[in-house]
Design a protein around this nucleic acid. Structure first.
Lengths: 418, 418
DNA sequence: TGAGTTAAATAAAATAATTTAAAAACTATT
DNA sequence: AATAGTTTTTAAATTATTTTATTTAACTCA
């Protein structure tokens, strides 16, 4: 798992040193562990004084001072000014150096890519949203994606170009432990992450799109102190990102969260997974488009009709826009879908008793049009004692959840943060 | 959270000292933390040499030696003999002292109580199974339960009587963090655990029955290296114990795992939870009894009929016994129930992608009669890629899962083991 | 059986960390 | 504006821990 980038700066080298897991002798090992703990603590709590750091990590002030000085020498920490005093000498605040490392998130959607860059202090430095792209399981589509990534990097100002890691979010089945993607770009023996690493020269991780969005929302979005959170990604399919005890839950092979394919209905619609009765067959964006077409064929009217014809292809975003413009048919259909999603989520609530359920993904942009039917389905279908515990909220990062989550995963995986 | 038992031995006192979380100064704190780490390590891996311990915990051999000697002085660790040498001086093995502390598990079922005692080394010292008892949500029933506990303790030989903690398993909604039970014995303002503590003088924890069984099965049962495991408790109701990353998952208020009440059917049967369509209405022991009665009323025959009449009350155990004796009606009904449970479990598999699903509880005693229909329902309803990851096995501890799990929870909570 | 080998346990030396004390920097008060 | 009161920072002294070296114990094989 070791990988050093000799071409890169001294700062990077010290990051790799501190976070490598080579076995070294007692004292040196402990110092490295302490440095890691300090970086971790600074990451969690922001700028901190030496006294606080010493108390938090149970090490003495002189020891803390010497470690901090080493980290300053490494270029990873710097003096960030003085604390406001309440009587007594003002303490120096120490914090991470934002520009000492950068991390990249690539959020691959059906018809576009969102791509962004995060610094060491978790600020989103740049992001390019909606870069046109057509996702398909072909070599051409993969090459196109690589080109988008490379263009993004080469357009970056020199100061932000030492990128330590990339995380790419893909829909479908992704094993983020070994870097295999099963639904897309599974062309070689080696894991997809390795292929990308070899092309870009940058350490690469893969993650399922819904999990990455959940992670972003968890760390930089709507979540405050909650530790058990579910993120429901309402898009063409239905995804689920599970955060348990503050960490992503992936299951044995990274296939956890296949919420869209739980057998909740007794219909005859064949899902693209091959089974019948999946939640997705009746409650996804895909289903919404199907239902919409059916209604139109039956003679219903909608603002989306132009000279009695529907745009082709009919994008989900059009239906969402129409809903927000109070198109009656769309509103009705969204309500119907919401009630079914709610029934699905009530299963989750009974099983997880979560603190928070976040509605994200493109369908969540219909806001209350979808939240209210979901909420009332929850009251109908889940145990009230359990349900009362659970808040149902809309995503705060919206379309940026994936990029930010991806960047954070790249960062936290590389630095082996919990 | 501190509680000292002045009446008890010096050994106990040192356990409380080592595991108390009072804030003490640097060196003393670190020594205490190291002692805790040593006990933890000995607990996980069994008897260990000083050299191995030093390597595992990254402390020097002399330091380890002095800590071990302190622990021996505390009566918590002892020399357990020498290791088999492969050339060279034979190392001393050190391990926990089994009789230095005891922990009690009380598994409360509908018509009986199982009760057991575990020593510091996780051996089940004694257990009394099937102590007759009638669970009801009344003060009398509670008093009766307390009497069973007190009788059990007073019948214990003197050497095993210093019990540090009790864990009581109750069905229904239990918050094991604060000790409240909502389904049973919720008579006072204070948590039920406190009430029991005051009566018995022993630190008491509560746990949901299915979770306790899952914990027992996880640590002393069928589970080997798996870390994400689901335990399905098939009894009068359907319970679920969720082990994630080797730890019990309880949800926000301890209500996680309400698997029996997921809305999987569109029937009109009112569940005892007040909702319609719950899994329990068609796939639980309760449902089995109902279906059995219906079949008999419709004229079906069964070996359980005596002079054309059914025993009253008709216990689940009778139906299970009949199934094992190849009663055709019972076998058919179990198969039907199994298929529905399987549909429920396939929801869990899609969501959790677990390594292992364990079937436990009294219904699991029908073995292959229930396992096979469940297995084939899983193939039918869950995604094959995800499903292939998951092993479906029967409980190994069977009826002892609850007691052993309870004892272990008492122990691990008191010692704040992970 | 005893020399040679291996590894654990212990002792001594060296290093490292904590503790205590003192100095420096700042606030509030008289 | 001087000074008492706080709190951080640095320095010195003390205590702890690790390293290294030595001794002890057990095994192997001629």
């Amino acid at each position: 798992m070791k990988k050093s980038n000799p071409s890169q700066s001294m700062v990077n080298q010290s990051i790799f040193d501190i976070f490598s897991d080579e076995t070294i002798s007692g004292v040196a090992y402990k110092n490295k562990a302490l440095k890691r703990a300090i970086i971790n603590h600074l990451d969690q709590t922001g700028n901190t004084t030496i006294t606080d750091l010493a108390a938090a990590l149970n090490i003495s002030v002189p020891k803390t001072t010497s470690l901090i000085n080493e980290l300053i020498g490494d270029g990873l920490v710097k003096d960030q000014g003085k604390v406001d005093s309440k009587g007594g000498r003002r303490a120096s605040l120490y914090g991470l150096v934002a520009e000492s490392a950068f991390f990249m998130g690539v959020d691959v959607k059906h018809y576009y890519v969102n791509i962004g860059l995060l610094d060491f202090k978790k600020n989103l430095v740049t992001s390019e949203m909606h870069v046109p792209y057509q996702l398909a399981n072909t070599q051409e589509s993969f090459d196109q994606l690589i080109k988008i990534i490379q263009d993004f990097i080469s357009n970056l100002p020199a100061a932000t170009r030492n990128i330590l890691a990339i995380c790419m979010n893909l829909s479908g089945r992704v094993n983020s432990e070994n870097g295999y993607s099963y639904s897309f770009f599974h062309f070689h023996e080696e894991p997809l992450s390795t292929t990308i690493e070899q092309i870009t020269g940058i350490r690469t991780y893969l993650e399922n799109d819904s999990r990455a969005m959940a992670y972003g929302e968890f760390h930089r979005g709507i979540v405050r102190d909650e530790k058990n959170v579910l993120f429901v990604n309402l898009d063409y399919g239905i995804g689920l990102g599970i955060m348990i005890n503050g960490q992503i839950y992936r299951g044995k092979s990274g296939f956890a969260g296949e919420f869209g394919h739980i057998p909740l209905f007794t219909n005859e619609i064949i899902c693209h997974c091959g089974k019948k009765g999946c939640l997705e067959t009746e409650a996804s964006g895909q289903a919404l488009i199907r239902l919409f077409r059916e209604k139109i064929a039956q003679g219903s009217s909608s603002s989306l009709l132009q000279h009695d014809k529907l745009p082709d292809p009919l994008h989900l975003s059009s239906i969402i826009a129409a809903t927000r413009n109070e198109d009656v048919l769309c509103i009705e259909l969204i309500a119907g879908i919401g009630e079914k999603i709610g029934r699905g989520i009530s299963v989750l609530i009974n099983i997880f008793n979560p603190e928070l359920v976040i509605l994200g993904g493109i369908l969540s942009e219909t806001d209350e049009y979808i939240r209210l039917p979901i909420r009332s389905a929850l009251n109908k279908y889940s145990l009230s004692l359990v349900n009362n515990d659970t808040q149902l909220v809309m995503s705060r990062l919206q379309e940026k959840a994936g990029v930010i989550g991806g960047c954070l995963i790249a960062r936290d995986k590389l630095l082996s943060f919990p």
